[in-house]
Design a protein around this nucleic acid. Structure first.
Lengths: 208, 208, 208, 208
DNA sequence: AATGAATGAGTGTTCATTCAT
DNA sequence: AATGAATGAACACTCATTCAT
């Protein structure tokens, strides 16, 4: 059996075990057994538990971004792009709950090194969304005149909401990827439209 | 020294260590040392590492909801309530990063038991937000005619966005609680208003 | 049972096992079992296998030099001092073969760190012997006029011979410490006397 | 490439690695890699790590005795033979530190089996020296009247001193083989001469 | 004649947990 | 009310050794 295939089997097993038990509770023994190989082979191919984890994160991050990218056609209007991206995202996380757990929970809770690995992917996505928001403003022939950080905060909000919804949809039986995407589009798009039109929510005055 | 005080010291230590190192990497030795007591005493008071963690989660969850509750005056308009709640929330998470890490990261990553503990708190908050959204609709004399789950999804989105923004604000120097709250209000409120007015974002037809 | 006592038991066990099986072949399990304690306790007291080994070397080195020092009266003539020292040395190595193995074999074969530990002790002994040789020259009212390195080489030879004889005496049944000491005195003392008197062995000329 | 050549390459690699890292720390992987062959081939040719080590010891022992034998002309006087032998010995150990480490340190530290292997070679050398001492006595037309074991002890001392000096000379920069040999000749020969002449060092009476 | 691929068995080390006092 | 002393069980990692080809 060729090495590349074996390696994928190991990553499959690792993602499953780590996604379910957690990184630290996942033992190399268990992973090797689930992968149907001996422990030394795991070490031969992947060096250490940390390297194995990093490989999992990278593979899952690549798969997730690839799924989203494939779902989006860059020649369509911005709202359509966001809609397609969200559907792809929710569909992927629903179909790969262990991978999603690895990325969203495990990688962020076990050391800066791993967190940085997902942070890189997340920045890509946030950048994509940021640019969609700007495109939406342009499409509406409006000048948002909004500080960059403000836009970043909006994109961050949208992505954070999507991440939360993904977990919520997975945990709530009967919620499809399409429904989750629709909910978020409704929540986000009109609000963003208003914002672009200058209808800012104004905080009450007189406080620290 | 009375037991209650000692217990709080232990929880303080546990929250700090667990928040920084993570639940599994946090050793009882380290926690006992930071608390200034012997390890057997920790076990005498808190039974086991799991119970200790549960106690941490409960205490921090209570403290967080209490902070938000105290920040909100229920006799003000819905948007003002949300604004105040968000500011309280962002202020609290900024001031208690370890507690926030325990609730948002650690508790959700190390087993259903702990996840359920935060889920309970989260449901309270989501319910509060849900009811604010409904109140907003009522205030505007409009009938949202929106299925309950849809509203739940919106609240979920808002809370999720808030959680993400909290972490983002903590990690981005120079972002105050007030700014984070303003960003989220802008993002959410106008969109919700539109929604309540029936301006739903309509998905393109013809897909699965 | 007080800590100091336990620690000595562990070192006893470690010296025995390491002396017999060798450092690398000695397992911490085996050492703990022979010491009658659990493995974690060994680690609690002695930190690591390396530290345990270092502690063994230091203890055995101290015991050996102490035995020799105690055997020698510094107010007697040099030859008598050497004779007493050698007897003490051979007696000690015969009675503590494992300790001798730790010092002479194990410590020198498993890394610079450990080798340096015995080298320090050995330098003490070589210095003592060097000074005895000088004293012998003075006693005989002779000026050796011998380069320092030459004397060092002689002392080194004597100590090396003693070390080899110790192992040989241990392995040859019926050879007592006294006999070994007598053999070495005969070998060394007259030759040194001649040397001090200037009767140098002259190498044949005409070679590289 | 013929088997015999390959085998020598493997032994070269093994001697180097074992001499430097030590027998137990030397891994078959490393040895195979340094030899430029695959690990199974090492096993095919040399059966096991123990057999490989034994083969190393035998080869190095043979090479060392051969070097000494070649350096000595049996038709010369005894002291000249010893002088030549020592020079050859010190020259060889200086040029082959790894081989010397294998023989002098590693083989004696890792089990009776290997120790016996060097002991055999050592006995040859001791026998040679023993016989030189006897020859010296004969040359001087003296009857040593010394018990056989006593002579053996002397030879043992001389050989032991030589071994120690070899290591010392290797570790002390600037000490040549010739100087080491001269030091030892000075140390040994005059003393032996005295002994043969009956000038025994007499231990003080009245002790056990 | 030679190797890529694989493993059983064992190592040092750590940690939550408990007595005995 | 509190602790010094101790351990069972587990884990990451390594290595000599062997198939199948």
């Amino acid at each position: 059996m060729p090495r590349a295939v074996r390696e994928q089997q190991m990553l499959d097993a690792a993602v499953r075990i780590i996604g379910q038990r957690g990184y630290m509770a996942a033992s190399m023994d268990e992973i090797a057994e689930l992968a149907g190989v001996s422990k030394p082979l795991v070490y031969l191919y992947l060096n250490s538990k940390e390297d194995l984890f990093t490989a999992c994160i990278r593979r899952e991050a690549a798969a997730l971004t690839e799924a989203v990218r494939t779902g989006v056609r860059r020649d369509l209007p911005a709202d359509r792009q966001l809609w397609d991206g969200l559907r792809a995202f929710f569909a992927y996380t629903a179909e790969h709950p262990d991978g999603w757990s690895v990325l969203h929970l495990q990688a962020r809770t076990h050391g800066e090194v791993f967190a940085a690995e997902v942070a890189a992917m997340r920045e890509d996505i946030v950048a994509f969304v940021t640019q969609l928001i700007a495109a939406a403003a342009r499409d509406a022939h409006r000048d948002p005149r909004m500080p960059e950080r403000e836009v970043a905060g909006l994109a961050e909000s949208l992505v954070g909401a999507a991440e939360s919804l993904a977990t919520w949809a997975n945990a709530t039986p009967g919620v499809t990827a399409r429904q989750a995407a629709a909910t978020l589009m409704n929540f986000a798009w009109a609000g963003l439209g208003n914002l672009m039109g200058g209808q800012v929510w104004t905080p009450p005055p007189g406080e620290a």
